[in-house]
């Protein structure tokens, strides 16, 4: 075997759920490298590493890195140009 298996972005639900107050399983992200847009759940996550490395399924560049230290988390999103997050509906008007 020359390529490590990766898992899909659904595995990020728990780790990102520690960071974000919204449900990340239905979020979408735009790759800063190739522009492809798709669900976070479709990212390729390399988890046999010092942190979680989520790569674009289109160009395989890194979109997200999450390092969980005992009392801190580091989230690097420079490879993500835009995150679209599901939010509770706000009242109209105002």
């Amino acid at each position: 075997m020359t390529t490590l298996p990766y898992v899909d972005g659904n595995m990020l639900d728990g780790p990102l759920g520690e960071v974000f107050a919204v449900d990340m399983s239905t979020a979408t992200g735009r790759c800063a490298h190739c522009g492809a847009t798709g669900p976070v759940a479709a990212l390729r996550v390399y988890s046999h590493a010092p942190g979680l490395v989520a790569r674009c399924p289109t160009c395989t560049e890194v979109m997200m890195r999450l390092v969980r230290a005992p009392e801190r988390a580091f989230l690097d999103l420079r490879g993500t140009a835009l995150l679209q997050l599901p939010m509770p509906q706000v009242p109209a008007g105002g």
Binding site: T2, T3, L4, Y46, H48, A49, G51, V53, R55, V62
Partner: peptide, 11 residues
């Protein structure tokens, strides 16, 4: 000897 990698293994 655990294998750790942050991405695909380059050939």
């Amino acid at each position: 000897f655990p294998v750790l990698s942050a991405g695909p293994t380059p050939k």
